[in-house]
């Protein structure tokens, strides 16, 4: 029997949630027995090679590239899980949501007290993904099947969730594993 495949990505996140995945410690050996990793920063596979059972999404959508990757995950994965506060509610990057984009860019590239920018322009290049008007939680962009909040979610919560999904069991997180911080 071929092993089910799992994929993961970090959109507008800090990779802290991926650190929390690694934080399952020696259970990662068990995980490797249970699943095969497809596209993921853990194995550095850049493109989907096959259909996946589970996709773990860290980070929200702050730019066009994030949206593109998220949609790609949606079309390649049976089950998508938002992992962490950035994916579930926008997180720290969403702090800019109350501020008009123009002001954000001006503060970052033109007017900020530590800015040194001789061009006097906001970077604008085809290579740079277009920034969105605000940061969106993943479920406001595509359908997300499950949410694991936390900054980051505890390693145990991620482990429990993945094991439940792989065994087709309902996920019943104990009180201590559902946290927003």
């Amino acid at each position: 029997m071929t092993k089910p495949k799992i994929a993961s990505t970090s959109l507008c996140g800090c990779f802290g949630c991926h650190m929390s995945i690694l934080d399952i410690d020696d259970r990662i050996l068990k995980l490797v027995e249970l699943v095969e990793f497809d596209k993921s920063p853990i194995n550095d596979i850049k493109r989907f090679t096959d259909r996946c059972l589970v996709g773990l999404i860290e980070g929200g959508c702050a730019n066009q590239e994030n949206v593109k990757v998220l949609r790609e995950f949606r079309s390649h994965c049976d089950v998508l899980v938002s992992v962490g506060d950035c994916a579930t509610m926008g997180g720290i990057p969403a702090m800019r949501n109350g501020i008009p984009l123009k002001e954000c860019l001006a503060e970052a590239y033109l007017d900020g007290p530590t800015v040194h920018n001789e061009t006097g322009r906001v970077p604008h290049d085809e290579e740079l993904p277009l920034i969105l008007d605000k940061v969106y939680p993943c479920h406001e962009v595509v359908k997300i099947d499950y949410h694991l909040p936390g900054c980051p979610p505890p390693a145990d919560a991620i482990w429990e969730a993945v094991v439940a999904l792989l065994n087709n069991k309902p996920l019943d997180l104990p009180y201590e594993l559902l946290k927003y911080d």
């Binding site: 949501n97 939680p137 909040p149």
Partner: peptide, 10 residues
Amino acid sequence: ATPRYPYMFP
């Protein structure tokens, strides 16, 4: 786990 409503970010 997460609210079902869209965030308003007021």
